[in-house]
Structures are given as C-alpha cells and as structure tokens.
C-alpha cells in the first residue's frame, strides 16, 4: 500500500517535471529568454565590468557576489552543524582508525604522500588564484587543499594531523571565507559605495583596477582557505574514534 502510494506520487512528480521540461525552450535555440535577457550583458561587457576574463568568476564574485557570500555561509553553517552534533576533536589526543591499528602504514605509501602533498598544495593555490583568467577559483582550490590534508590524515593518522593543524588554529581560519566578503564589503561602505562594490571612488583608473584585482584575490583566497579548512574540520570531527555516544535518556 505504502509502496503504491510512493509510486503514484513519484509518477505524478515525474509527469509534471517532464511536462514542464517538454514545454521549455529548446536547448540550442538562440532566442530563448535565458540567452537573450540577462546573459548578453554578462558575455558582452562582463570582462571589463566585472574584472575577470572568466565570465563565470565575474558573475560569481561580482554580479552575484552577495549570493556567493550566502553560499559561503551555507558551508560555514554546515560546519557549525557538524561540530554542534559531533563535537571537535582534541588536539593530539584524538585517534582515528590508523592510530588505533596495529599494522604500520607502508613505507611506500608514506613516502609517496610526503612527496606529493606539497605538489597538490601548489596546484590548489594555483587553482585558487588562477580562477580569474581560467576555470577554477577559490572553492575548487579549497576542496583540493581539503582533500590533500584528508589524504595526509588517512595515511598518518589523526593524532599527527591535529598536532600539525590544531583546532585552535583552525577556528579562526574557518570563518575567513565570510570575513573576506564582509571586510571587502565594509571597505566599500567606508568609501561610500554599495556593499561588495570593487571599484572604489577617489582612485585613479589604474589604481582602481589594481585595487579591484587585489580585492577579488583576497576574496578568492578567503573562500579557498576557509572552504578547505572547513572540509578538514568536518572530516576530523567525523573520523575521530573517541567521539561521544549519543545520549540515550531524556535528561
């Protein structure tokens, strides 16, 4: 009975969605509203208006920078949610599966990870700062940083990683992504322009260009570092073995 109900509901949803998709403008049409209304301005003037060769970066950081500030806060709230439920690990005392295991990690694996970690980090920073002329950007770079440190933790164990990057050092870095946006926004407000405007008045044309580039880079780095550290913190608080059990009874 329940199965039937679910099937009927799914069928109704599916038919509705397919009907809507069928009535959508065809993907390759050049006259559909999603290609003629807002997009031409982005494509035509995006580079000089938004200050990024990659239009996507221009839209993400400039035209719709406020949305990106919100998205960054979504990641931050996900971190807060995980920490609030699972609690943070203890510096140097928390253990993961590798610490607890009797078998030592293979020398080959540790050597290769030691060698490739800096290279991956370099690539991550490149992705972060090269988001302006080419695909990539802060978030992707941050994810790569996070993945590389997660790799390190999987191989060397949580005790070692938390000694290298203790919770106390991570806490300020976790909100760096929001603080990057907010500080750039408040700088704009101090100069008397709108929030998250990157062209500051009272500077020469060349100086304004440089300042804009600098501000966009600060934001990219903030998104990257904050995002990466948030990934790391989430994973750390999930893989620790000494986590609290859920309370069974009502207090």
């Amino acid at each position: 009975m329940k199965r039937l109900l679910v099937l009927v509901a799914l069928a109704v949803i599916g038919v509705t969605l397919l009907y809507g998709i069928g009535k959508m403008p065809p993907m390759d049409s050049r006259a559909s509203p999603d290609k003629t209304h807002v997009v031409p301005r982005y494509l035509g003037h995006g580079e000089e208006e938004a200050g990024a060769k990659n239009i996507i970066t221009g839209v993400i950081l400039n035209y719709r920078g406020y949305d990106t500030m919100g998205e960054v806060s979504v990641i931050f709230s996900a971190l807060c949610a995980v920490i609030a439920i699972l609690d943070r690990e203890k510096k140097g005392r928390s253990r993961s599966g590798v610490d607890a295991s009797r078998v030592r990690t293979s020398l080959i694996v540790t050597t290769v990870v030691r060698f490739s970690l800096p290279v991956v980090m370099l690539f991550a920073v490149y992705t972060m700062l090269h988001g302006e002329p080419s695909p990539g950007g802060g978030f992707q770079g941050g994810a790569i940083v996070g993945a590389s440190i997660i790799l390190f933790t999987i191989v060397f164990g949580l005790a070692v990683s938390t000694k290298r990057i203790p919770p106390g050092a991570r806490v300020p870095m976790e909100s760096v992504n929001m603080l990057g946006f907010l500080s750039m926004g408040f700088i704009g407000l101090a100069f008397g322009v709108q929030f998250l405007t990157y062209i500051l008045p009272g500077l020469g044309v060349a100086a304004a260009e440089t300042v804009r580039k600098l501000m966009l880079d600060v934001i990219e780095l903030g998104i990257g570092i904050g995002g990466g550290i948030i990934f790391i913190s989430i994973v750390f608080s999930m893989i620790r073995e000494d986590r609290y059990e859920l309370q069974q009874d009502v207090p």
């Binding site: 979504v74 709230s77 996900a78 807060c80 949610a81 609030a84 439920i85 609290y244 859920l246 309370q247 069974q248 009874d249 009502v250 207090p251």
Partner: peptide
Amino acid sequence: ITSYALVAISGMKE
C-alpha cells in the same frame, strides 16, 4: 541547515 542542527544540538537520540 542551521535549524536541522539546532534541533539535534542536545545530542539525544530522539
């Protein structure tokens, strides 16, 4: 997301 977390924050199973 924050409201899911706030509901669960006491850590009780229910």
